[in-house]
Design a protein around this nucleic acid. Structure first.
Length: 578
RNA sequence: GCCCUCGUAGUUCAAUGGAUAGAACAGAGCUCUUCUAAGGCUUUGAUGUAGGUUCGAUUCCUGCCGGGGGCACCA
């Protein structure tokens, strides 16, 4: 990448000035916010100025003189600006070459070198069986999917895992509720089985407020389930089956797919070996009848592995913490020690993951760098948090329907794609740790910094390409050779803002991958599309009488390719027409 | 009480310790005989508070204030 070339030439310049032995020397190259300030900017002179007690601008000038002695061909101009920035201007040849490279972008998918072919498991979505797929699950699904796409693009071998919540005391509650107020045949017959199950779940919590015995019954039923009680298993199976059918529909709408969906129940027989590991290490103790991991210096509160024995079944139920440990042990064994495990789960579970990671480090399952919790904030009502228990959550399907309905007002054919795109982008454009206050107007906004704006821009570019084809304008890669000659002949300095944005795509993806932050891509795409629409606004692109037309069209093609790839990384479809 | 997070225009979001803090929505005003006006161009407007570190702080550190979350049998 161009960044590496610049970095190297700065290093060489510093060496010849004997400045390279300074402490903690990091060469920082950034894109100036103002495009007229150049393509890359380096602040090294200002950092070094104090250490060698020189004026930063004078020092910058000296460095520039050294760089110019071995100027990389990609650079056309270097200047010192402001308090001592060294600004690099890239040459027309560079832009032409880069734009040509971009036309092959589709072939580069999965070839990035950041991942080095390592395996990465991205666990996301992970809805709970017999609970609604609410807008709350949207974040994990959409962000996790985007992270998986980005890592794949960057060269990781990605496993997408849906860690279904299909185990735990919640099933005890459900079994009690079904036995008391409904029945398996009744649920099977229902046209809205999930809604019925949710209603039962909510009713359980309502009634448990007055009758605390219900909670005990639920715990007992979960221990029965864990011990293989036939009635419990039967009810559980029905719930899982019904839920999965519903989830499939939602994933299809969202265009999200998984490689594995083990679910918590899968680790049922893999927990005993974890308990053995813990015992060997002596990090857990019995306390008040339960079995918990205690951390050194009370770094974290204790983490429970086994619950108090249930009196009637004489069984100690597992906790989700134990199942998570078992899951990671299994993953490392199955996919190899170098595997990176990433969980896209809400912020509320931060403490849980800190405890899990700490414990897994002690157990030697992970080294710490290979176990990541990507946390996201919540969708919230202005009045407070959503909760299935209280029954005030918003179902995802309703939101999607509403968004599609709104998109239909503009164009019936693409309404589905645009509606879903709007919802996804609205989520992905934000730094994910922040909460999103739920607001229909905001979420359904099809204008401005939005998915539809990007999709529209793509369709528009495609429309130009169709027109160019009709007019018989050549815009294949060989055109770029002509542009180089043309530009050099004219001594043209006319490099468009669009070109200045296009070549940044790989850097942006790299950063998004390193920081597990899809929003960098979202922000970038908005800027990119704005520069395209601005470019487009300045006059005709397809024009037989304009000798630059084929270059402009080729640039349009490069834009459409970058935008499409970017949107795909975010899991958003790029329509040909709108 | 302890721990984790987030405080940026009226609103929703950006900003790898850098240059004049960017956008979008809403408001005001322009702009389609042209390849898509879901577009483009003008314009008003912001870093919670008090310190510290730094040549330089929205960013790092400390205190305070405010929102959200978590802290033993939900996951």
């Amino acid at each position: 990448m161009i960044r590496d070339i610049l970095e190297k030439s700065i290093k060489i310049a510093l060496q010849s000035l004997n400045l390279d032995n300074a402490k903690n020397l990091v060469i920082n190259l950034e894109h100036p916010e103002e495009l007229s300030h150049g393509d890359y900017s380096c602040n090294i002179a200002m950092i070094l100025a104090k250490q060698v007690s020189q004026n930063p601008r004078e020092l910058a000038e000296k460095i520039v003189v050294e760089i110019l002695k071995n100027k990389p061909i990609e650079v056309s101009k270097i200047e010192v600006a402001g308090p001592g920035f060294i600004n690099f201007y890239l040459s027309p040849e560079f832009f032409v070459f880069q734009t040509k490279e971009i036309l092959d972008l589709d072939k580069k998918y999965g070839k990035g070198n950041i991942g080095e072919g390592k395996r990465a498991i991205v666990e996301y979505s992970s809805p709970n069986i017999a609970k609604p797929f609410t807008i709350g699950h949207l974040r994990s699904t959409v962000i996790g999917d985007a992270i998986a796409n980005i890592l794949h693009f960057s060269g990781y071998k990605v496993v997408r895992d849906n860690h279904l919540g299909d185990w735990g005391t919640q099933f005890g509650k459900l079994i009690v509720a079904i036995k008391k107020w409904s029945s398996v045949p009744e649920i099977r017959k229902s046209e809205t089985p999930i809604k019925d199950l949710v209603a039962l779940y909510v009713r359980f919590h309502d009634e448990a407020k007055n009758e605390s015995i219900l909670e005990d019954e639920a715990r007992t039923w979960f221990t029965k389930l864990e011990r293989g009680n036939l009635e419990a298993r039967k009810i559980w199976e029905v719930c899982v089956k019904i839920s999965m059918k519903e989830f499939e529909k939602t994933y299809k709408r969202l265009g999200v797919k998984f490689d594995t969906a083990y679910g918590e129940s899968f680790f049922e027989d893999k927990m005993a070996s974890v308990i053995e590991d813990v015992k060997k290490l002596g990090i857990a103790k019995e306390s008040e009848g339960a079995y918990l991991v205690f951390f050194e210096n009370e770094k974290y509160p204790p983490m429970m592995l086994l619950k108090t024995e249930d009196v009637s079944t004489e069984h100690r139920a597992s906790t989700y913490a134990l199942r998570d440990l078992a899951a990671d042990k299994f993953r490392k064994k199955k996919y190899g020690k170098d595997t990176i495990i990433i969980n896209e789960v809400g912020m509320e579970q931060s403490l849980h993951f800190q405890q899990i990671i700490e414990t897994e480090k002690l157990l030697g399952y992970v080294n710490g760098l290979d176990r990541v919790h990507v946390a996201h904030g919540f969708y919230r009502f202005p009045e407070g948090k959503m909760s299935t228990r209280k029954g005030n959550s918003i179902w995802l399907d309703e939101v999607l329907d509403e968004a599609i309905e709104k998109a239909r007002e503009f164009n019936k054919e693409t309404a589905e794609i645009v509606g879903v795109g709007a919802i996804k982008f609205n989520d992905l454009k934000r730094e994910s740790s922040r909460d999103i206050i739920f607001n229909w107007d905001e979420i359904l906004n099809l204008k401005g910094d939005s998915g539809p704006y990007l999709q529209y821009s793509h369709a528009r570019a495609k429309s130009i390409l169709r027109k160019a084809k009709e007019e018989g304008i050549e815009f294949c890669t060989k055109i770029f050779g002509i542009k180089i000659k043309h530009n050099i002949k004219k001594n043209s300095k006319e490099i468009t803002d669009l070109e200045k944005m296009l070549y940044r795509f790989p850097e942006v993806v790299e950063r998004a991958g390193k920081e597990y932050s899809p929003h960098y891509i979202a922000t970038y795409l908005i800027e990119l599309a704005s520069s395209f629409n601005n470019f487009y606004g300045k006059g005709k692109i397809v024009d037989k009488n304009d000798e630059d037309s084929s270059c402009k069209v080729a640039l349009t093609e490069a834009f459409s390719i970058v935008l499409k790839n970017g949107l795909n990384l975010l899991g958003i479809q790029a329509p040909e027409k709108m």
